Amino acid sequence: MSTLLSLLQTELPLIQAPMAGTQGSRLAAAVSQAGALGSLPAALLSPEALKAELERLQASCRPYNVNFFCHTPPVTDPARDAAWRTRLSHRFDAEFGTDLRNAPGGAGRVPFTAEAAALLAHFRPPVVSFHFGLPAPALLQAVKNWGAVVMSSATTVAEARWLQAHGADVVIAQGLEAGGHRGHFLDDDLSLQLGLMALLPQVVDAVTVPVVAAGGMADARGVRAAMALGASGVQVGTAYLLCPEADTSTVHRRALASPAAAHTALTNVFTGRPARGVLNRVMREMGPLADEAPRFPLATSALAPLRAEAEARDNGDFSPLWAGQAAPLSRPLPAAELTRALAAGLVA
């Protein structure tokens, strides 16, 4: 624990998971002010928006983390995209008045780039984390040049070893329970991925860098269990989505606070890559895992008009309601109060 604290420069070995689309600098700053490490997700931010968010975080004068995806953008497959849109159109256009076959395309989430690295260098964030592996060596070195601590997610022991060998200072062991996108990058086979209770001790034994546990923790009991299995710290995401400082949508908050939160599933229908969320109508009818979905992140644009129309009707059946399996344990607490409650699990 002491090694992790010295790396993160925080009072607590707790990290708020970066959650693109549902939070910004407001939540990250509140968590950092409470003594943990707040995280800013950058995958959906333009350079201008990222700069503005970093300026707000810098003003908080507390350590923080900036998170990026580092996937390789796929080559567009027009036939696959058209087939997916046609299937969606036949199923939902008449009901919602949409035209999904002709919905505008878009890149969706963007990976870490040289432009982002140059922008970050101006702010020199103390921690930078990645999802889906690590960026190219030159980009990673650019981050390390100002002394940033580098973290990344592993869903298998092989990925944890790879991350340590390629320059990660901290490995985040992401159990299968975790909400949002799976961090796998060496193999797409979901059967290789383990629940946190099985994954965490194996990763701890396999690497020498600090290991942070992620997935299935929403209160002090989960934190205590992860620390007992050898974690140097924990990363919590879903529990923070009900905080007033989060930007979680109305339909998403309602789902998290309802009995529906007890049933989550991995799905690729929203983005093209497996991610865990509360089971809803579009997941049931189109997946949850659909071989026809365009490659990540190209699937995002096809559903966008349907999601917008449904949310305008206060309907979350076409929205990505990202959540981990411990979602029913979440409570609508201010971020500082939740952070203190989680920290109680650090005491033996």
Rank of each mutant, 00 (worst) to 15 (best):
H166W: 06
G175C: 10
V212I: 03
G179L: 06
H122K: 13
Q33N: 12
V203E: 07
A348E: 14
R254M: 12
H252W: 09
A43T: 14
L266T: 02
R340D: 04
S39E: 06
A136N: 04
G105A: 04
A82D: 10
L333V: 01
A335H: 00
A261M: 06
A220N: 06
A275K: 02
E285V: 08
S330A: 15
L256S: 07
G237C: 02
E53W: 02
L176S: 02
E292I: 14
D81N: 06
L45T: 03
L200W: 09
R101E: 15
P334D: 00
F68S: 05
V278D: 09
R124H: 13
D291G: 12
V75G: 02
P332C: 01
T267S: 13
A138L: 11
A293C: 06
R56A: 02
L12Q: 15
A214P: 07
S301N: 12
A218H: 06
S258E: 14
T339F: 02
E309D: 06
G147S: 08
A198S: 15
R273K: 15
G230D: 07
L194Y: 13
R224M: 08
L329W: 01
N315A: 11
R221H: 10
A198N: 11
L266W: 11
A336V: 01
E11M: 07
N268A: 03
A79R: 09
V204F: 09
E48L: 12
V211C: 04
P305W: 14
T72R: 13
V127R: 12
S153K: 04
V149R: 09
M19S: 11
D188C: 08
A302V: 11
T72Y: 07
V251D: 14
T22A: 07
R281L: 09
R221C: 07
C243Q: 00
P125T: 12
P334H: 00
A79E: 15
